[in-house]
Design a protein around this nucleic acid. Structure first.
Lengths: 111, 111
DNA sequence: ACAATAGTTAACCAGAAGTAGAACTATTGC
DNA sequence: GCAATAGTTCTACTTCTGGTTAACTATTGT
């Protein structure tokens, strides 16, 4: 099921710091230390968040080409696409409802 | 900030049962009892989930017109639209990255 | 008035999740 | 080799969250 990926996505993005990381990585690949500093997290905390983001396939990592100590993270497209599809699906049913619901409300308010 | 709404959205949809409720309500308005039965939750548990969904503005409620005991819930469009916008924004930055990243990878692989 | 139904609220419990601090690994540079 | 840096892992500790049970409110129907 693709639903698993959606489930994992929401589970992972439940944490505000991880959402912030995703937002930051949206602007470009960054090092772990930079992310920790930007979010005001400690190194261990950020390390954990990144491991979780990795396990969910939301980000990918790469060793620094010049300095092998640094780890550079970047976003992974697939999961976001899956969630967008999920939201679109929920909304699709909705739009169908909206017509009848609108009529329902108008009918109610005109009484 | 609109970001607050997005934060709230993820916070609320972190729970699988609440995601299921949203999915169910996507197919049409339903009573609290029906949602409890469909998700295999107890009444108190569902009541809590619905209160949370309400407070986040994700759903709206209505009393049954024939039976005032029942409470009918339906989805609210605005929050989902906000989150879709958020995801679109993240993805937009991305697409810009993809070009340069692709070139970066190709350059690396050709060595 | 009384029993049954729909749902909410409150108190308590158990498990999960995030955090901080200390120790550890690997790499760089002098 | 040694100090410094980048990051990870481990071990508590704390907080948050969701579930259950029991009691309660409101409404319906007889």
């Amino acid at each position: 099921m693709v639903e698993d990926q959606v489930d994992r996505f929401f589970e992972v993005l439940a944490d505000p710091t991880r959402r912030q990381v995703v937002r930051l990585l949206g602007e470009g690949p960054q090092r772990a230390g930079q992310l920790a500093a930007a979010t005001g997290s400690s190194s261990p905390a950020m390390s954990r968040h990144l491991r979780i983001l990795l396990s969910a396939g939301l980000v990918a990592d790469e060793r620094g080409s010049d300095d092998a100590r640094v780890r550079i993270f970047r976003l992974n497209p697939e999961p976001v696409v899956a969630v967008q599809a999920w939201l679109d699906q929920v909304q699709a049913h909705w739009r169908d409802q909206l017509g009848s619901f609108k009529r329902h409300v108008e009918q109610k308010e005109s009484s």
